[in-house]
Amino acid sequence: MTLETLTFAATASSPRVRSDAEAGLLELAGESYPENSFEFFQPILAWVEDFLARDDRPLGVELRLTYLNTSSIKCMMDLLDAMEEAHLSGRAVSVTWFYDPENDRALDLAEEFREDLSLPFRIVPMPSEG
């Protein structure tokens, strides 16, 4: 059974999501304050766990999130925790967090995530669009 590909279009309160099992890549970009974060993130978390459980290939997660409400932060933490566990077992995983260099808060948020993790976590400045 092949892994389902995730493709969510961005909305005013939820990010664009794209997954590529072939390339071992997951991308999230945009705002994240949906009405029910757990519902929104459930398929994404399931995809990550599924990918990590079946293959041996590396997984790269790229995040370009402009805002996360606290529930989204919680869900994102759960996702990163799963990746951390895989990392500790020797699996190749990595996170790249792009942030708007003019926004200190965005950098703070990224660093707060990185604090709790030992997996490769890059924080990259990226000029915001428009």
């Binding site: 974060s37 409400n69 529930s71």
Partner: peptide
């Protein structure tokens, strides 16, 4: 639960 209970703290 709908939220994580973190809003006030944040």
């Amino acid at each position: 639960a709908l939220g994580a209970g973190l809003g006030l703290i944040r």
